Deep mutational scan, measured.
Amino acid sequence: MTSCHIAEEHIQKVAIFGGTHGNELTGVFLVKHWLENGAEIQRTGLEVKPFITNPRAVKKCTRYIDCDLNRIFDLENLGKKMSEDLPYEVRRAQEINHLFGPKDSEDSYDIIFDLHNTTSNMGCTLILEDSRNNFLIQMFHYIKTSLAPLPCYVYLIEHPSLKYATTRSIAKYPVGIEVGPQPQGVLRADILDQMRKMIKHALDFIHHFNEGKEFPPCAIEVYKIIEKVDYPRDENGEIAAIIHPNLQDQDWKPLHPGDPMFLTLDGKTIPLGGDCTVYPVFVNEAAYYEKKEAFAKTTKLTLNAKSIRCCLH
Score class of each variant (00 low, 15 high):
residue 4 C to T: 12
residue 6 I to K: 09
residue 7 A to W: 15
residue 12 Q to N: 13
residue 12 Q to S: 06
residue 18 G to Q: 01
residue 18 G to L: 02
residue 21 H to S: 11
residue 21 H to N: 13
residue 23 N to I: 00
residue 24 E to C: 14
residue 27 G to M: 01
residue 29 F to T: 14
residue 34 W to S: 01
residue 44 T to L: 10
residue 44 T to Y: 14
residue 46 L to F: 15
residue 47 E to Q: 09
residue 51 F to M: 11
residue 51 F to H: 15
residue 52 I to V: 08
residue 53 T to C: 06
residue 56 R to F: 08
residue 56 R to V: 14
residue 57 A to Y: 05
residue 65 I to R: 05
residue 66 D to I: 02
residue 67 C to D: 11
residue 71 R to S: 11
residue 76 E to S: 15
residue 78 L to S: 13
residue 83 S to N: 08
residue 83 S to H: 07
residue 85 D to N: 14
residue 86 L to D: 13
residue 87 P to C: 08
residue 99 L to I: 12
residue 101 G to D: 09
residue 101 G to L: 05
residue 105 S to N: 11
residue 110 D to Y: 00
residue 114 D to I: 03
residue 115 L to N: 03
residue 116 H to S: 10
residue 121 N to C: 12
residue 127 I to S: 05
residue 130 D to P: 01
residue 138 Q to C: 00
residue 158 E to N: 10
residue 159 H to F: 06
residue 161 S to P: 13
residue 166 T to A: 14
residue 173 Y to N: 13
residue 175 V to A: 03
residue 178 E to W: 08
residue 185 G to M: 06
residue 185 G to Y: 00
residue 186 V to N: 05
residue 190 D to C: 09
residue 190 D to W: 03
residue 203 L to H: 01
residue 211 E to S: 12
residue 213 K to S: 06
residue 213 K to L: 12
residue 213 K to T: 09
residue 213 K to M: 11
residue 214 E to A: 11
residue 214 E to S: 12
residue 214 E to T: 08
residue 219 A to Y: 07
residue 220 I to Q: 04
residue 222 V to I: 05
residue 224 K to A: 06
residue 226 I to W: 11
residue 229 V to A: 07
residue 234 D to M: 15
residue 236 N to I: 08
residue 238 E to V: 08
residue 244 H to G: 00
residue 248 Q to A: 06
residue 250 Q to I: 02
residue 251 D to H: 02
residue 251 D to N: 10
residue 251 D to A: 02
residue 253 K to P: 00
residue 254 P to W: 02
residue 254 P to R: 04
residue 255 L to P: 02
residue 257 P to N: 03
residue 266 D to C: 08
residue 270 I to Y: 05
residue 270 I to W: 05
residue 274 G to F: 03
residue 275 D to Y: 09
residue 277 T to L: 09
residue 277 T to G: 04
residue 286 A to I: 05
residue 289 Y to A: 15
residue 291 K to S: 13
residue 298 T to S: 11
residue 300 K to N: 04
residue 304 N to M: 09
residue 305 A to M: 03
residue 306 K to Q: 08
residue 307 S to V: 05
residue 309 R to W: 07
